[in-house]
Structure formats: structure tokens, C-alpha cells
């Protein structure tokens, strides 16, 4: 009864299968997706209340505030990356498929970013307007988030994998992951600053691009190793 001749299933196919699956799941649990986004919006909107409505101050702080809020939002959403799959046993099955684990991890990270990172990128310019950022600042803010948030998801996947099923995992993951986010924060927020002061953000953005490349190559392996360790 074992049918011979399995369909040729490429790496790309495995990647697509995981992305499609996770996006379908996200579509059926839309509330989860929106919470990250609203968290981001609320945190950014709280700063003026704490600091005062002085526009000149707010304009200076805007890149940093938005970026820190993006860091926190992305970190909060990490818990969702693997833990549901861990609880219902689908993660276990994924580890036992003949597909290379880094590819599956990459698929999961990409889907996770589409759902939790991309919305931040899209809404950030709107929040920048609240802080009276000039147009070039808004553009660079969106671009830097577009390049930077995938790095956050990739690094975060390692932390999420390591803390899988660990008690207090949610707080722990922030301890592990936030220090590693620092370079992205520096160059992300720095780029917007540079664009606003007329220096040009090219250097910052290229470095963020380099981080993305490095994270794309290394993080799926490390996250895969983390998952295998956590499943033992």
C-alpha cells in the first residue's frame, strides 16, 4: 500500500508550504496579529504623554522612540513563533520531516515577519507624522524598518527556540534577545537621524542590509539547533 514515487519536493516547495500554512493560520486568528500592531501604536503614542507635547523635542526623539517600540513589539510577538506548534505537536513533526530544518525555520520566520513585522513598517510613517517628522525622515523610517525588522525576527527566532517550553519563557526571551537587537536599533534609528540632518542614510541602510544578509545566513541554523535542543 505504500505508494512509490513521491512527488519531487524542492526546498522552495517546503518553504512555500510552511509560509502558506502559517499565513492561513494567522488569517484564522486575526486578533493575535492586531494585538502586536496596537501594542506598537500605543507605546509610540505614550511617549509624548510622558515627555510633553514640545514638538521640537519630539522630533528629535521620534526615530529612537519608534525603533524602540518596534523592538518591543517584535519581541512580544516572538512567543507566537513556535510555541503553538510546540504545544500541539506539529513542531515535533516538522523536526522529523526530510526537509532541512533551516529552510522550515526560514519559512516560519518569513511568515511571522509578514504578519507581525510588515504591519509595523506600514504604520510607522503614520506614527512619524504624529511626531512631525519631515517627509525624508518618514521615508527613511519606513525603509529602515523594512530592512531592520526581518533581522529582529531572525534573531528573535533563536531566542524563541531556546526558551520553548521554559517557565517564564516570555520574560526570559527579552533578556536573551534585546541585547542582540542593539546594532539594529543603532543603525535603524541612526539612519533616520542622519536623513533628517541632511547627512544621508545610505551608510546606515547598507549596514542594516549587511545585518539582514548575515542574519539570513546564520540565524536559521542557530534557530534550528535551538529547536532541536528544546525538543529533546
Amino acid at each position: 500500500m505504500n505508494r512509490a514515487g513521491s512527488v519531487d519536493f524542492s526546498l522552495w516547495g517546503a518553504f512555500r508550504c510552511i509560509v502558506a500554512r502559517d499565513l492561513t493560520l494567522a488569517m484564522r486568528r486575526r486578533a493575535d496579529v492586531l494585538t502586536t500592531l496596537f501594542f506598537f501604536v500605543i507605546v509610540v503614542s505614550l511617549f509624548p504623554l510622558g515627555i510633553g507635547p514640545e514638538m521640537a523635542t519630539l522630533r528629535i526623539m521620534a526615530p529612537g522612540v519608534v525603533w524602540v517600540a518596534a523592538l518591543l513589539a517584535s519581541m512580544l510577538s516572538l512567543e507566537r513563533m513556535f510555541s503553538a506548534d510546540y504545544r500541539d505537536g506539529t513542531l515535533e513533526q516538522m523536526l522529523l520531516t526530510p526537509q532541512p530544518l533551516p529552510v522550515l525555520v526560514l519559512g516560519k520566520v518569513f511568515a511571522h515577519w509578514l504578519v507581525s513585522g510588515l504591519p509595523l513598517v506600514l504604520i510607522a510613517p503614520l506614527l512619524g507624522v504624529q511626531y512631525d517628522l519631515p517627509p525624508e525622515g518618514l521615508l527613511i523610517l519606513a525603509v529602515s524598518l523594512l530592512v531592520g525588522t526581518p533581522v529582529l525576527s531572525l534573531i528573535g527566532a533563536i531566542g524563541a527556540g531556546l526558551t520553548l517550553g521554559v517557565r517564564g519563557g516570555g520574560v526570559l526571551v527579552s533578556l536573551l534577545v534585546l541585547p542582540l537587537y542593539i546594532p539594529v536599533l543603532i543603525f535603524g534609528a541612526g539612519g533616520v537621524d542622519a536623513a533628517m540632518s541632511g547627512l544621508g542614510a545610505q551608510a546606515h541602510l547598507s549596514l542594516l542590509g549587511a545585518f539582514l544578509l548575515g542574519a539570513l545566513i546564520l540565524a536559521p541554523w542557530a534557530a534550528g539547533a535551538a529547536l532541536r535542543i528544546s525538543m529533546e
Binding site: 505508494r3 512527488v7 508550504c17 500554512r21 492561513t24 484564522r28 500541539d88 505537536g89 526537509q99
Partner: peptide, 21 residues
């Protein structure tokens, strides 16, 4: 290893695809 939000068919399809069937 069954996702509550997916249908029986979708669950099976994903499992079989990943397993290379």
C-alpha cells in the same frame, strides 16, 4: 500534531507535503 484552525484536509496536506509524500 493537528492544527485546530486548519481543516482535516489542510492538516493532512501540509503533513504529507512536508513528509515528501
Amino acid at each position: 500534531g493537528i492544527k485546530e484552525e486548519l481543516t482535516a484536509l489542510e492538516n493532512l496536506r501540509v503533513a504529507v507535503q512536508l513528509a515528501g509524500g
